[in-house]
């Protein structure tokens, strides 16, 4: 019995999110039908799918905002599905969620927004430390210090997302949910946001569940990508492996004009990154020396 528990505990540690046989229905329309998905600890999992395939519904189900019609969802080994939305508090302080529009509380400043979860879960932290925590979280999310005292209405779209990210990170979560973080950002802002997520993931050791339409994001920062189609997850794999699969939607998605453009961009990036690494430098040296040796 105890052995089983430890096994379960280990499995939990390895797979923070386990979705089994998820069914979601709205009226007659079935969005998910027997959807399975496991997220590994410490990975950035991208979730893609056409419009209306229920990417956001999947995320809402996992974080307990949408009661599914069937199936089981376990986050950190605890079942989300059989509780009321306001109940599962043992898990809520271990994840952070960034909603599509930021979903900042509009009557509070950015700093106060970050403080809300801190106050909710850790009332014993004194005001000064809480202000400081809010400030460094805001700055970690790539906002200038002044943004702390600004209201959401005074921020641009990209800044709102960063502020939302700061709030999602408020409790030092292990698990981060991002709903289309780069949608509506300009390419430079989107690339910067991608880098920020990758950096934070590495620094804080996060597990990231990332819904996106952005092919660049998929290529750049996702460890694995889950493809939603036909009411379930049809494949979970790295981008290169997915591209080898023979599924019409996946082919269209990754090998379409936009998919190829993103791939080229990534290849160029990769090349540039290696330019200043020793291997590349050695190669350059070898090439430089070659004619002399020949002579």
């Amino acid at each position: 019995m105890q052995e089983e528990d430890t096994v379960a505990e280990n499995a939990t540690a390895e797979y923070p999110i386990v979705v089994e046989g998820l069914v979601n229905r709205f009226g007659d329309q079935t969005v998910h039908d027997g959807l399975d998905l496991t997220v590994r600890r410490g990975e950035i999992l991208g979730v893609v799918g056409g419009s209306g395939t229920g990417k956001s519904v999947l995320m809402r189900s996992i974080i307990g905002l949408q009661a599914p019609a069937g199936g089981d969802i376990r986050v950190f080994g605890r079942s989300i599905t059989d509780r009321a939305p306001d109940e599962v508090l043992g898990v809520r302080d271990r994840w952070g969620v960034l909603f599509q529009g930021g979903a900042l509380f509009s009557t509070l400043t950015v700093g106060e927004n970050v403080e809300v979860p801190l106050k909710q879960f850790y009332g014993d932290i004194d005001d000064k430390l809480r202000h400081e925590i809010a400030r460094y979280k805001v700055m970690m999310s790539g906002l200038p210090e002044e943004a702390v005292a600004k209201f959401p209405a005074e921020l641009s779209g990209g800044m709102k997302k960063r502020a939302g990210l700061a709030r999602a990170l408020a409790l030092d979560p292990e698990l981060l949910f991002l709903d289309e973080p780069t949608a509506g950002l300009d390419p430079i802002g989107a690339a910067a946001f991608d880098r920020l997520i990758a950096e934070l993931q590495e620094t804080l050791g996060l597990t990231v569940f990332l819904i996106t339409h952005d092919l660049d994001t998929l290529h750049e920062i996702c460890d694995r990508v889950a493809v939603l189609a036909d009411k379930r997850v049809i494949a979970v794999d790295t981008v290169p492996n997915l591209m080898r699969l023979d599924h019409p939607w996946i082919n269209e998605y990754f090998n379409g004009p936009r998919g190829r453009a993103a791939l080229t961009a990534q290849a160029l990036d990769e090349l540039r990154r290696h330019m200043d690494k020793p291997v590349a430098a050695n190669a350059v040296k070898v090439l430089d020396n070659a004619p002399q040796r020949g002579a």
Binding site: V114, R135, Y136, M140, V148, F151, T203
Partner: peptide
């Protein structure tokens, strides 16, 4: 390692500065 990385990440913020409340 982890502590050093985290300290590095948070040290960009100044100790005293703008407070959230307006």
């Amino acid at each position: 390692d982890r502590a050093a990385r985290l300290i590095d990440a948070v040290s960009a913020a100044p100790m005293d500065g703008v407070t959230p409340s307006r």
